[in-house]
Each structure stands twice: as C-alpha cells, then as structure tokens.
C-alpha cells in the first residue's frame, strides 16, 4: 500500500527543535553537541544522529532505488560517509542539509553503477478499508509513478524528491544541490510537467 504514512517529514522534526525544552538541552542543542563529540572521535555520539535522520535518509535512498535492499545498503553508506566527513562539517548549513547532500551524491553514484534492481519490499500495512483489487491497483499506480520519477533528469528528480517527499524549502534544496532558488523552482515545475507526460505515456 502506498498510502501516505504519518511519518513526520524533516521540517516537522526541525519545528520540534524550536519548541522549548522542559529539561535539558533542546534537540538542536543536543544535535550540535553530538556533532562536536563526533568530531572528537566519539563514535557513540554518532548513534544519536543516526536515530534522528535514519528514516529520512532511508526514504530518500528508497526513492532513488525503489527497493528495500538497495535502500538499506545506501542508507548505511550515507551514514558511513557522513561519519568519515563530519570533521569537515563547519555548520555553514543545517546538518540535515549536509546529510541530504551526501545522500543525493551516494544515490547518484549508485545509479551510475547501474546495479540491477533487487526485489521490492512487500507492502506491510494494508488498509483494511480497501479491497484487495483496489490495493493491487493502487500499488501498481504507485510503482508506475515511482518509475516515472526515476526516469526524470537527475536535477529534476532530486528536486522533486527533496521538495515533495522531504518537504525541504526551495533554499534548502538549492543548498543540497549546489544550485539557486530560481533554478530549483524552474526544475520543480519542469519536473512536474515531465512527470505528468511520463504518467500519461504509461497510461497513468
């Protein structure tokens, strides 16, 4: 089933950062402390960052590879690369933006390697209010749409994924992709137009 889940997107997480903490450091302060600890080589601190971003990174990877096995491998790879590079993280952007950038690069490298797709993860939470035939139809539509997204040019696909599924702002997307807000807006609209055409070609 491809019905939207209640998983909070990144902005919701960041919004929670701004809420006043009753006791102890705020999530954002805790994140900063964890980053500094990681820079000192404290491996345990990295676990906090993984907990916080694992879902978003896994989902980003899944959008690129469309199967659980490869998304799992890629997500691990993203965190490993982040660990190796965290000493060079200067805080000039949000940590999440930096992590997304590593993720996008890892996904693009993976696609460049052109590994054959592994078996897709079966849908795990069927909607009891929907009949079996309709579930199959929805799953098929979702598969076709994911494949259509996968056929978009790289920058359009990355823009769509970050904007629609990770709810990043135009500015954040621009930071991740090393682009400008204007280009991000143009790529988003162009990508949506292309997606519509691809969906029409595949019978939607």
């Amino acid at each position: 089933m491809d019905a939207p889940t209640s998983t909070p997107a990144l902005p919701a997480v960041l919004a929670a950062d701004e809420a006043p903490a009753e006791t102890g450091p705020s999530p954002r302060e805790a994140e900063r402390a964890a980053i500094e600890a990681c820079k000192r080589g404290e491996r345990e601190a990295f676990d906090q960052l993984v907990v916080r971003y694992q879902r978003e990174i896994y989902r980003l990877c899944y959008r690129y590879v469309n199967n659980h096995e490869d998304a799992n491998d890629l997500a691990q790879e993203v965190f490993l690369r982040a660990w190796r590079a965290i000493g060079r993280f200067r805080g000039q952007s949000a940590f999440s933006t930096w992590l997304y950038r590593i993720g996008i690069n890892a996904c693009l490298n993976f696609r460049a390697a052109r590994r054959p797709p592994a078996q897709e993860l079966p849908e795990t939470i069927p909607d009891p209010g929907v009949g079996a035939a309709e579930r199959v139809e929805r799953a098929e539509q979702a598969r076709r749409l994911r494949e259509a997204v996968g056929r978009l040019p790289e920058k359009q696909r990355a823009t769509l994924i970050l904007k629609i599924y990770h709810d990043l702002t135009h500015k954040e997307v621009a930071q991740v992709l090393g682009s400008t807000v204007g280009t991000v807006k143009a790529n988003l609209f162009h990508g949506l137009g292309n997606l519509r055409k691809l969906m029409a070609e595949e019978g939607e």
């Binding site: 089933m1 491809d2 019905a3 939207p4 889940t5 998983t7 896994y58 989902r59 899944y62 959008r63 659980h68 799992n72 897709e120 993860l121 079966p122 849908e123 795990t124 939470i125 539509q141 979702a142 749409l145 994911r146 997204v149 769509l160 629609i164 599924y165 949506l192 997606l195």
Partner: peptide, 9 residues
Amino acid sequence: ASKVDVPEP
C-alpha cells in the same frame, strides 16, 4: 506524486 509514499520497512 504526493500520494505515493515509501513502503514502511
């Protein structure tokens, strides 16, 4: 596109 989510592992 907004309706298509990633399957929950």
